[in-house]
């Protein structure tokens, strides 16, 4: 119970830090604008003549590729740069609680940004009779994917005091996770004929696991995939922080 209180304290501070700087509002505005652009222009929301948010969700892996690392890059590198990491890690909390607290705060922030796309959901309901269950699944999947990207950004930001490097490295890693399950890559690996490699790579792909959510299916294996990706990346964050405390 005590550790939960610590996590909450850390998360509260972190979330507060997002909203006291203009970055949070800028981020949310950009996120919403891009969502609109992707959905209506590229996704041809109206032309599809289909009451669903498929054209909204389908671009999320790409949209998050840049936006989520931008949110996560400061998590630990900023602590390192300003030296506050020395305060944080000498307080009577474990590194775990700090890592989870910070992660949850920025995840909550992303979920909030995601929730602010609700006008889309209202308009699609106004225009037609969509499958709201499927839309809900899409949101769940989207939030999980954002969490997975974020945990990777947390890991890369623990490595360096430079936010730009943290951003670039996490974009690259996330990009690989997208490519891994992407149709053309799978086809390419198929042509190589090494089946286990193809399956391994494909199983790491974010796309494969996100697809089902868009279609309105919540598969425990997909949820487990995202959660274990988050768990793994946060664990690595802990290892990196422990080994590079003084650096």
């Amino acid at each position: 119970m005590n550790s939960w209180a610590n996590i909450k304290t850390i998360a509260k501070r972190e979330l507060g830090a997002y909203f006291t700087s203009p970055v949070a509002y800028v981020f949310i505005v950009i996120f919403l604008l891009l969502c609109g652009f992707f959905t209506f222009r590229l996704g041809q929301f109206f032309e599809r003549n289909d009451a669903s948010l498929l054209s909204f969700f389908v671009y999320h892996p790409w949209l998050f590729l840049f936006l989520v690392p931008a949110v996560g890059m400061r998590l630990w590198s900023e602590e390192r740069r300003s030296g506050t990491i020395e305060l944080l890690l000498t307080m009577p909390i474990t590194a775990w609680q700090a890592i989870v607290g910070k992660f949850l705060a920025s995840w909550l922030f992303l979920v909030l940004a995601l929730a602010l796309t609700f006008p889309l959901w209202i308009s699609v309901n106004y225009l037609g009779n969509p499958d709201n269950g499927a839309i809900f699944c899409g949101y769940i999947g989207s939030a999980l994917m954002a969490g997975a990207y974020l945990s990777i950004a947390s890991m890369t930001s623990a490595m360096t005091r430079n936010q730009v490097i943290a951003f670039i490295v996490s974009v690259v890693i996330c990009f690989f996770l997208i490519l891994a399950g992407w149709q053309p890559v799978t086809t390419l690996l198929d042509s190589l004929g090494v089946v286990w490699l193809r399956n391994l790579v494909a199983s790491l792909g974010v796309m494969t696991h996100f697809d089902a959510f868009q279609r309105g299916v919540i598969d425990a294996r997909d949820v487990l995939f995202f959660l274990s990706l988050i768990g793994f990346a946060l664990f690595s964050t802990g290892v990196i922080i422990r080994s590079r405390r003084a650096g």
Binding site: N2, N6, T9, K12, R13, T20, G83, P92
Partner: peptide
Amino acid sequence: APAYSDMTVYGFLSFAAEVRG
């Protein structure tokens, strides 16, 4: 003397107090 630069003095001390239970 590092301190969270985006917090107010009161907010910072309040955070420190909360971490200490």
